[in-house]
């Protein structure tokens, strides 16, 4: 099956007064229809900027300086601004952490959804409202016809996020980029939304990139996982591979530091130090100062992809079992 989204060598740089920072460094992955890719990383790892770079939404002083992004075979970086705008919202959509980034607080849900429908497809408003109602129904909103008349502030946080997902779905996009969409929600509401998202991928065949810091969420939701550190993908594989048999010391360290994997009360294995500032990355491998397996080689040369099934950016990957 050909990929719905293919990202290759994507590099995004921010040229600031205090120097140039590469927030996304040579990132490559692809997502097939109906699959969910979890893009995991800690703060400052570049996971969100990757999402924004795919959408063509990186603001000044940032810019995508290299690589390609292909959706359904169309190279997005070769499109004009106008064509890109047509692409966004129809073939490619985004869901943000805060649904109020998507929703207009002074418009009724139905009005703004119908507007989003009619931007891309000519149809009477009545039909557009019907499309909107169907989309709300798909994401599990009870009595969707009534919700169309509501304003965003009349809905709970979980409901607003569902509306934002419904808006992303309006044109049956091939690809949805979801940036921490359940992070601000309660676990019971998060559970409901994760169940709906899995169903969307399975039933409608949308390819989904789920950007998050939460390994537990991706391990239960995603088919494939990319782990990011300091702007790079350091490990990539199926969820079973990455979670069950991590090869990169950073992935191993992240998994080890999760309390649920240890006897209660015991000392948690921890990764020493803190995430590096992108403007002051160490030479060679950026994870080197925090890594117990680091050698002289890690100091002098940056690691390149070693691939045997899963991709690991490390000179001394852990043994596969």
């Amino acid at each position: 099956m050909s990929a719905a989204l293919d990202v290759s060598g994507l590099t995004t740089r921010f040229d600031t007064r205090s120097g140039s920072v590469t927030a996304v460094d040579n990132v490559s992955f692809s997502v097939e229809p109906g699959r969910i890719l979890g893009l995991v990383g800690e703060s400052g790892s570049g996971k969100s900027v990757t999402g924004f770079s795919i959408m063509g939404l990186v603001d000044e002083p940032g810019q995508v300086v290299a690589g390609s992004v292909t959706v359904d075979g169309v190279d997005l970086r070769s499109l004009s601004d106008d064509d890109m705008r047509k692409m966004r919202g129809s073939r490619l959509a985004m869901v943000f952490q805060d649904p109020m980034m998507t929703l207009n607080p002074v418009l009724r849900i139905g009005d703004q959804m119908a507007m989003a429908v009619r931007v891309h497809r000519k149809m009477p408003k009545r039909e557009a409202l019907e499309e909107s109602r169907k989309a709300l129904d798909i994401v599990g909103i009870p009595s969707p016809a009534e919700r169309l008349k509501a304003y965003p502030h009349q809905l709970s946080g979980g409901m607003r996020q569902r509306v934002a997902i419904a808006m992303a779905l309006l044109h049956r996009p091939s690809v949805i980029i979801a940036d921490e969409p359940t992070t601000a929600l309660d676990v019971s509401i998060q559970g409901q939304i994760l169940a709906e998202v899995r169903r969307l991928a399975d039933d409608i065949g949308t390819a989904i990139v789920w950007v998050t810091h939460d390994l537990a969420v991706v391990s239960s939701l995603a088919d494939d996982i990319c782990v990011m550190y300091a702007g790079r993908i350091v490990e990539r594989g199926t969820a079973e591979q990455v979670i069950g048999n991590p090869r990169h010391p950073y992935t191993q360290g992240l998994l080890d530091s999760i309390p649920a994997r240890h006897e209660p009360g015991g000392h948690l294995p921890q990764i020493p130090g803190s995430t590096p500032q992108l403007s002051r990355l160490p030479s060679g491998c950026p994870f080197r100062p925090r890594c117990s397996r680091a050698t002289e080689q890690c100091k002098s040369e940056p690691p390149s992809d070693s691939r045997d099934g899963q991709i690991v950016l490390c000179h001394h990957p852990l043994e596969g079992s």
Binding site: Q190, L255, I258
Partner: peptide, 22 residues
């Protein structure tokens, strides 16, 4: 509450979500 919490593990799981809202 326990049923809706994602845990780190291999293999997909179905979320047995609590219906409705607080």
């Amino acid at each position: 509450l326990f049923a809706s919490v994602p845990t780190v593990g291999t293999g997909k799981r179905v979320f047995e979500a609590i219906q409705g809202e607080i």
